[in-house]
Design a protein around this nucleic acid. Structure first.
Lengths: 190, 190, 190, 190
DNA sequence: AATGAATGAGGATTCATTCAT
DNA sequence: GATGAATGAATCCTCATTCAT
């Protein structure tokens, strides 16, 4: 099986397995062995490629974040008016894999991880700042207090995530979440 | 001085130690020994009183929830108009010990715990339902869509908590959080 | 079985087991489990009492060193003439448990350990300095160049140890070793 | 430029890397990967050439021993009187690469290895016997008890090695070591 | 009531070794 | 000949939990 180029494949598989295992189990207390097994490799290989469990977790965070960033950029590129840009940002938060139950769950766990791990905290703050800054920028032509509205909207989005993570079962409903945020924004913009 | 009552004292000390240790460390990965040491007792006693680590965690959750509930009831009792009741509920979320950094951190961790532990999930849902129902009730005379506004406000509150938990340092600012929620509510009520 | 005062007993048993296991196996590559089993306890207990494998090793070194020191002090206390003191120091090196095969073997391994572990190195240097200083002191009235002779004698003693550690089997012969060192010393003292 | 000979080159590089890595780290706990990296090849190649880690270690021992033997033979060939032969043997022990810190350190570690590995023990005993036999031969015309003096001198040499291995830093001083042994020998020969 | 003593189970990590290419 | 890929086996260490006193 040894084949050049295996590394990128394995790393991807391990990162995805990490997200899905954390999500499935709803906790960071997943073992490297579980993750490795789910990726179809040995736990030793996970260490070989990532060095440590923490590094694997960070790689998983980066993957979620970059996935989100990519979606957001694509959506923004297609939007021409400020209002469209605003909606694009909101939609990006709940679209694609972002609102998949296991991803949301992993995401919540990374929030907790950030309280201990400086590296994780740094990643999270970059994401937080970017989303607020994107929102502020889009809101500037649309309301008096763009920063305040952006911060409220960002908190609202995070709150919907967390509520979703402990929701009373039922399938994820991205449309409802998007509608709730847009309703708020419609109320405070012209 | 009856020896009776010692048990209640010890249990309280252990529950408080649990919250503060989880908060201080920012993670559920605290050991029973740490908690017990912080409470000045042996880890064996913690098991003697609570049976298991999970049960101790649940007791800590209940303590936070009941503290919050007590504060909310007191505030509601003193409020006479719907608008005052609304503000009372919002303020209760950020007042007293509720917004103390270690309590917020512990709280966030319990959210994560709820993804694994059905008992924790149950507790959390009760709290979530109660707050939405309180808000809805207060909002009924004040706006067209009380349920929707209540759900949005509740999510906003949770989002402010989570953002606070990974905030860029700085002391907690309950007034700012309250103001942010009230600004939203002021915009959607008459 | 839990009984107060167990700790000292267990620590002693573990330290002795450490020495004998290292000696038996002739290598520092003994597992904590092996040592613990040989001491009749669980490996967890070894960590409970000593913190880490390295600390257990250091405790074993200290034990050998203090055993040696005690024997040397006793012998010196009974000696009245310089010549008697000289012989006492030499004899102390090969008497008691010091020349037991497993102890010698452990001792050699600690020499190697000292190349990596600063703490072990410190212990060893203290021993080395003390023995040279004792020898020098005893030699002062007996020869022209006490320091030089002391250093040579100390090296000779170490050399006999190391040769003994890889000896062609056969029982340890402390008398022969003592005689060899004394023959050297007799030749350079009046 | 024949490709033939590549193997010998690689094997030499690996053997030297083994010695220098063991010496640098002061412990047999070097990994095959470290050694291979230091030799600029893959760890798989080390196994390909030597079969196992132990075999690589043995090859490194043999290399040190043969290096020493070569130096000793050259020195002996140039010596004409018994006294000169005696000095030649002593000097051989501390000359050339033999007293280089990493080689001494590796050497000490091989002494320890000999306590476990029969093959290593065999190598060491051959060396020990040869040095004693060389010394005895040179001493025969010079003193009454050549065997005894040879054994003492050999032990003294080993002791100087071991003391050097844990010396208080400072550069190796072969001249001082040679002088110390010669001083002893001068005292017991005519 | 309270604890020191003790452990079984489990997890991260390391590493020699193998193998297909 | 040479290596990247991969792993099984081991080892240190942690921790919740139990129990005799």
């Amino acid at each position: 099986m040894p084949k050049i180029g295996m590394m990128a494949l394995r790393k991807d598989a391990l990162v995805n397995a990490t997200i899905s295992e954390i999500g499935r189990q709803g906790s960071l207390d997943v073992t490297v062995s579980q993750i490795a097994r789910s990726a179809g490799v040995s736990s030793a290989l996970a260490h070989h490629y990532f060095g440590s469990k923490d590094d694997l977790f960070l790689a998983a965070m980066r993957s979620i974040l970059s996935e989100f960033g990519k979606g957001a950029r694509e959506r923004l590129a297609k939007s021409e008016t400020p209002a469209a840009r605003l909606r694009a940002i909101v939609e990006a938060n709940f679209a694609g894999t972002n609102f998949r139950p296991d991803v949301v769950s992993a995401w919540m766990n990374f929030y907790v991880m950030a309280q201990k791990s400086p590296a994780a905290q740094r990643l999270l703050r970059i994401y937080q700042r970017r989303i607020v800054s994107n929102l502020t920028h889009a809101l500037r032509p649309l309301c008096q207090n763009p920063e305040g509205v952006a911060l409220t909207a960002a908190a609202l989005i995070d709150g919907l995530y967390i509520r979703h993570a402990v929701a009373e079962a039922g399938p994820p409903d991205p449309q409802a979440a998007i509608a709730r945020v847009m309703t708020y924004l419609d109320g405070v913009t012209q």
